[in-house]
């Protein structure tokens, strides 16, 4: 059941025979060996695989942080491979949100200022920026924590701030790279519940890389990577 999805016009994300090679000549290392993947608006995809399976490389390409070596990547019908560095930055700015394993919040910067960051790059005026950031922090359950700096927050709270930062600018897709990698089970479940809620209620498309099967179970669709190829791609039985 490879590349299953309901076809309706242009998909949000479409990878066709995408390859990625690092290095040149003898030292060349093929990270992706031909990936075909379609992701529709509103989906929640978990990408699983062992380290070295190419799942992180794939997420980097999906997140427009990296360009594929071969094949084509269309984001909302736009061929990403042909965009310049700055054009890809703009695409990330307006359509993508990122959540990382290490949270990557700015140190010594309050939670609300961290959340405001993408809005600054979008040129949103200060007052409006502040309101939106406050509302978004409330949406991830951090009302009252606005002025705390990351070092004053627990890991789970930091990841919530990071999620708030990722969704504050209303992106089309949320890219999450091992979002629960640094958290204990209880915190992990809270984060996954939050992501599910955002997907269900906000209609935001989520692509999440994880190596934990428990966490992948929260997704609507699970894609397994092995040796730079897609091994399996299945709808998840569990409904959430």
């Amino acid at each position: 059941m490879v590349a299953s999805s309901q076809t309706s016009g242009t998909p949000l994300i479409e990878l066709r025979d995408v390859t990625k090679v690092y290095g040149e000549g003898q030292a060349a290392m093929q990270a992706l060996a031909g990936i075909d993947l379609r992701i529709e608006q509103g989906d929640f995809v978990a990408i699983m695989g062992h380290s070295g399976s190419g799942k992180s490389t794939c997420l980097n390409i999906l997140g427009c942080l990296d360009s594929p070596t071969g094949g084509s990547y269309c984001f909302q019908g736009v061929e990403v491979g042909q965009l310049t560095r700055d054009q890809r930055a703009r695409l990330r700015r307006y359509y993508l949100g990122f959540v990382f394993q290490g949270y990557n919040l700015l140190k010594r910067t309050s939670a609300i200022e961290n959340v405001e960051l993408p809005l600054i790059y979008r040129g949103v005026p200060a007052r409006e920026r502040h309101q939106i950031a406050r509302r978004t922090l409330a949406a991830v359950g951090l009302e009252g924590w606005e002025s705390h700096s990351p070092s004053e927050l627990s890991g789970g709270q930091q990841q919530r701030v990071a999620i708030a930062r990722a969704i504050v600018a209303d992106p089309s897709v949320l890219m999450a790279d091992e979002p629960t990698g640094n958290l204990d089970t209880a915190r992990s479940e809270e984060i996954m519940d939050l992501l599910c809620r955002l997907n269900r209620e906000g209609g935001i498309t989520i692509v999440m890389v994880t190596h934990e099967a428990d966490m992948a179970e929260y997704a609507k669709r699970i894609v397994h990577f092995r040796d730079g190829r897609i091994e399996s791609d299945e709808q998840n039985g569990r409904t959430n």
Binding site: G63, L65, R85, D86, A89, R90, L91, R92, R93, Y94, L96, F98, F100, G102, N104, L105, L106, K107, L117, P118, Y121, R122, R165
Partner: peptide, 16 residues
């Protein structure tokens, strides 16, 4: 470096 990486991921342009 990580802060710069985060900013770039969020969509900061090179010149920004």
């Amino acid at each position: 470096t990580r802060e710069i990486g985060t900013r770039l991921a969020i969509g900061a342009l090179e010149r920004e």
